[in-house]
């Protein structure tokens, strides 16, 4: 058991972690951030995706004690008050959700993609979300929403 310090969505957090406490468990159970979902719990479905120092990771496979001092971004931190992020708004407008379970992970993978590549091709979007399983939508609306979000971001950057 050790004390872990994290910056989560810009806010400093400290909590006690057992060796087997995953980042996902810490976020959900100890910090009350239930946006990241526990799907397969073996790193195969991507529903627990969060950003660890800007990189997307499956938080179910990250022992919390190993990332002391890290900067974590979750879906809860994306909106600015009532204003959704471009990716969130594009998902909403493009109806890129159905049951919603994969959505937080999809959105975080998309945010990470657009952070490093503002103008991705459709193939690059496919690649970026290839670790996120969706069983409802057939992916098409999700891919289109991410391309739409990329355009919104580029328009926003011009202003």
């Amino acid at each position: 058991m050790r004390i872990v310090n994290l910056k989560v969505n810009g806010v400093g957090q400290a909590f006690l972690a057992r060796p087997e406490t995953t980042l996902l468990l810490a976020l959900r159970e100890q910090l009350g951030l239930t946006g990241a979902k526990r799907g397969c719990a073996q790193g195969a479905c991507g529903s627990c995706t969060v950003l660890l120092d800007g990189e997307p990771v499956v938080s179910c496979l990250v022992p919390a004690a190993t990332v002391d001092g890290a900067d974590i971004a979750t879906v809860e931190g994306l909106a600015d008050g009532e204003k959704l992020s471009d990716v969130q708004q594009a998902f909403l407008d493009g109806f890129a959700t159905q049951c919603g379970f994969c959505t937080p992970g999809m959105i975080m993978s998309a945010e990470a993609l657009l952070d490093r590549n503002p103008n991705p091709t459709r193939d690059e979007v496919n690649e970026a979300i290839s670790g996120n399983v969706c069983r409802c939508t057939g992916y098409e609306p999700i891919v289109s929403a991410i391309l739409d979000a990329a355009e919104r971001r580029r328009e926003g950057a011009k202003l």
Binding site: C40, Q42, A44, C45, D123, V125, N126, E127, I129, S130, V133, G138, Y139, E140, I142, V143
Partner: peptide, 15 residues
């Protein structure tokens, strides 16, 4: 179930 082969976003046909 998690080891089933399933099509990902790159295998989606035009619809």
């Amino acid at each position: 179930f998690s080891e089933y082969l399933m099509p990902g976003p790159a295998e989606i046909p035009v619809q």
